[in-house]
Design a protein around this nucleic acid. Structure first.
Lengths: 334, 334
DNA sequence: TTTAGCAATCGAACATAAAGAGTGCTAAAT
DNA sequence: ATTTAGCACTCTTTATGTTCGATTGCTAAA
């Protein structure tokens, strides 16, 4: 579709624009290696590239700027692979090697590392608990009127919640609860605990356990709770030249404060790949100046959440994608 | 120290500036009720107020702006009390009435409410676990190589942590752990669990329980973990006129992203009062354009954390302080 | 002690000009 | 057929000046 020279020029323009944030002129490009032609020739090519929508011009007499379509072509076809240095690899390794006990912590570390290396803002959401199967539910009595329920799912996610009662709970009641839940629910999908439990209680216990109602209520609440969100390096964004525009800055803040838009995007996307959403591609006004790159965080191929980067449309896709691929692989293989 | 008229003028200037963010002119003030004199008289008074450092002038021919010292006088001497409407009281009540099971949730709700009502950004930090006494420690086996430890402190804070082992743990070992911890540690300060435990294990158990080391390590880690931080309404700040300045916006983002400065400030402050830090008063460059108001969140007089507001120097101290007082009282009395 | 009056000061808004960067097009060169 | 030199044209940026209005400080009268 695009001849070699056009590809080279497009790549050069995008690389240049990514690093300077300034419109790229034909004159500038003649100074690059590999392009053995005059500025006039480049100008002619630029008109072509603009015609097919890969480039934009802020105004008549300015240099060119990549369009969303241009970035898309760049990401899909021109990307340098493995744009990650040895130091970066070492740094990531050292961070991920930290011995952690809970998956949440690992997610946090990964998110932080991603932001550190790319210098962009990084977001993570925990897994949807509702999608997991129950491995084990344990109840612990705290004081005399408080119960903690700990749910362990088959992918190792741990979720705990507290249930308060207006009257004292006995150790015996706790044992009964533990018995019921662990015998009847093991391996069941977490969002379907109501039904088997109801059946069981009805058929074998004759509703004898009065504590079951508040427990079920609180468990349901805990399970359906929104996944936790981690945000790292929001301040880094403010060093970017695009944040000179108050409009852009404000949009960004709204994006990461309400989180809704970003999370929606993170919940779409394919499981086995890195997903790139470039500026206005998503048809969402709030995202027009930003790009989002996400991947599903998996451990031994079980989905544990989504981690993403949010940065300017002019983000260093090559680096971001390379680093993500590496982190994703490391997380999964651990 | 200040005669009545000067006080009135100062108050009028600050009130006006708080609501408009524009330098206040002598002419403007003559239109206010209660000041029955000409603009020239007010001008004379203004020079006086400027001389003692309560007012500033952006430039020679502009109106006056309150200085940090001016705000300080305003907060200490001129504040309208109970600047809170019936609707606001109702709103706060309805929010705080929500039945919650964990203290963390209540803190979150209070923080959110505070931000909603004042329209400023609100921050909360949980209590320092180290300052509490242990009420109960419970261990739960999850799977075969994972242990969850749940610590209940005397002020009702619950802290849980996960310990992973390289070999299987038996239910018996768990029982032993529960026995040791609950018999030897009840009522002890949480940051001193090592010593009595060590003594006990040494004298009565002869180090027989091999699992104790990783448990202690992880417990210590959990106890000394930084307190959780809640942030609400960061985006609201961007509606303020002072955020037209990119400099200010950037400072703000850094403040709430790194959090360090704000948390330091929140950790100082007196327990029984509302603490106000106005702009450059703190000698911290990053805070020069902002004010911070904090209070200790208590329940039945036990300290549960700190909640604060961060807003422009020109914040509505009267409203913020009134609302805080009310929320503080409500939280404590619950 | 207060106030009217007024010159002086400064910022904001607007207009204008000059400089510089970059383009598109034309016509010549390869 | 392609490439390129040359040049007019366009648009931004920066600097400069001008006007307008708001507000002050000061002086002198009330």
């Amino acid at each position: 579709m695009l001849d070699e020279r056009k590809k080279k020029i497009l790549q050069a323009i995008i690389d240049e624009y990514i690093s300077t944030a300034e419109p790229v002129s034909s004159g500038m490009l003649t100074q690059k290696d590999g392009l053995n032609c005059s500025s006039a020739t480049i100008r002619n090519e630029m008109v072509e590239l603009e015609k097919i929508g890969y480039l934009d011009k802020p105004h008549t007499s300015s240099g060119r700027v990549p369009s969303a379509k241009g970035y898309r072509f760049y990401v899909d076809e021109l990307l340098k692979d493995d744009d990650i240095s040895l130091e970066e690899i070492r740094y990531i390794q050292s961070k991920l090697e930290t011995r952690v006990n809970a998956i949440e912590e690992l997610t946090k570390i990964a998110t932080n590392t991603l932001s550190e290396i790319t210098h962009y803002t990084s977001v993570a959401i925990g897994p949807k608990t509702t999608m997991q199967n129950i491995e084990e539910v344990k109840f612990v009595l705290l004081g005399s009127r408080m119960l903690m329920a700990v749910i362990l799912t088959d992918s190792g996610i741990i979720k705990e919640t507290i249930i308060k009662f207006d009257e004292d709970i006995t150790e015996e009641q706790v044992s009964t609860l533990n018995f019921i839940f662990n015998n009847k629910l093991k391996g069941k999908p977490i969002d379907e605990i109501d039904k088997p439990l109801e059946e069981y209680i009805f058929s074998e216990m004759n509703y004898s356990l009065g504590v079951i109602k508040p427990v079920m209520e609180q468990l349901n609440k805990a399970i359906n709770e929104e996944a936790k969100v981690y945000l790292e390096g929001a301040n880094k964004a403010f060093e970017l030249p695009e944040f000179k525009s108050l409009e852009v800055a404000k949009n960004f803040i709204n994006l990461i404060d309400t989180k809704e838009v970003v999370l929606d995007l993170m919940n779409t996307g394919f499981a086995n790949d890195i997903n790139v959403y470039i500026g206005e591609e998503t048809d969402n006004e709030a995202l027009k100046d930003f790009s989002i790159v996400t991947f599903k965080h998996r451990y031994q191929d079980k989905e544990l959440g989504t981690i993403g980067i949010i940065g300017p449309k002019r983000m260093d896709y090559s680096k971001v994608i390379s680093v993500m691929k590496y982190i994703s692989k490391k997380l999964n293989g651990k």
